[in-house]
Design a protein around this nucleic acid. Structure first.
Lengths: 211, 211
DNA sequence: GCAGATACGCTACGACCCGTAGCGAAAGCC
DNA sequence: GGCTTTCGCTACGGGTCGTAGCGTATCTGC
């Protein structure tokens, strides 16, 4: 799966003038900048076009509406998350929690994430797009972390692959949900202290989970 | 703290024609209905006014903008959450998780919640309003649940009141965050099975937490 | 080269929504 | 009955949306 595919893809038959790659990147960058300054509701297509140094019509040739544009502009930010091997499950989880918190500290990320999720509640296509572009993509972190913990003997191996998938989903929702809620709804800092206590709660629960 | 106070309160000096209570309730109801049908971004003040059978100017006499109106329209929905005593900590948590999930299943709730949170990332006043109207208000559920569990001997008493408050915040973020993330971001059902597994994870972690 | 195809920037447009102002009428207090 | 405030209604300037049309620029196939 390459980085992010546009909804309004140009014809596969390659003839005529190709689309400007610089315009693509300029638009996505301008979208993030506009999100930071104006927020979700005040972001306009015209403003993005001006910032990108591009005609408004060029935007509409690539994205059908604001939601799709913003999803693409933000999805790439999540790809920088990485699960560095810190030697133990606890350290790995703390590390990714703090990384995720830092990502959510960036104004464009939090504004865009909540905005598109809000819109997705009335838009099935957008929901699917979010899932494939962000959610499913970042579950790799949970899978990787568990595999390492299993190799270290910190977590037991799971025979049933279906149960394993359910556990992956559960852990992902708990980690991502808690961090997002702490940072955006409760509006409290996700600092090292909080990460330590959250991780302690989670890992204790994981260790005690499979009976 | 009474249910929800309007930002544009009428003069305390009571003279002249009083505001119509029916208009108030009709507007809030119309706002929820409009959220269901149109979603956050397509909700317009004019549409709400029409649905409520009220002039648009009447809306602006009570609420300064869309965000404040929607917060008030939705905050009351969260007050119906209750922590029935089901006899054990596990049962209590499962119960409130399922209750919360049902609340988030209503379209107006999820749309409005995510929408106002998105806007609040660029609006400190709105953030404060959400915290006082929704977040702080629902922490009562965590406090109540823990007190019951302590009385039953399922959880230890905590001497340090500050540590207790931090734990309340942590648990609240984990529970609310996980349910919201599961329901709205992952877009998967929060059913009895998921509630059972989540609760198991949480309660195991809580039991093992204080050393 | 040259013709065909496509993308580009630009302008203009109707439609819609915003938030406010001004009006006469209605509904309470003194 | 007079004062005050709210009500519904209409109208308005300002802004955004998404589209259409034009001439120009760029790339491919012949």
């Amino acid at each position: 799966m390459s980085s992010s595919t546009h909804p309004e893809a140009p014809r596969t038959g390659r003839t005529g003038r190709p689309r400007s790659i610089e315009a693509d990147t300029a638009i996505l960058e301008a979208t993030r900048a506009s999100l930071v300054e104006l927020g979700w509701s005040k972001l306009t297509m015209g403003d993005v076009a001006t910032r990108a140094g591009v005609a408004k019509t060029t935007l509409y040739r690539r994205w059908a509406n604001k939601n799709e544009l913003v999803v693409d502009a933000v999805a790439v930010l999540f790809d920088e998350l990485e699960l560095a091997d810190r030697g133990s499950l606890v350290a790995d989880v703390e590390g990714v929690v703090l990384q995720f918190a830092e990502l959510l500290g960036q104004p464009e990320t939090k504004t865009a994430l909540m905005g598109v999720v809000a819109e997705s509640t009335c838009d099935e296509a957008l929901r699917a797009r979010i899932r494939s572009a962000i959610v499913e993509r970042q579950k790799r972190l949970v899978v990787e972390g568990r595999e390492r913990a299993q190799a270290r003997g910190e977590l037991p191996y799971e025979d049933d692959p279906e149960a394993e998938a359910r556990n992956t989903d559960l852990i992902f929702d708990v980690v991502a949900g808690a961090v997002v809620h702490r940072a955006l709804v409760s509006a409290q800092p996700v600092d090292a202290e909080w990460a330590r206590r959250f991780t302690s709660l989670l890992v204790s629960g994981l260790a005690a989970l499979p009976r």
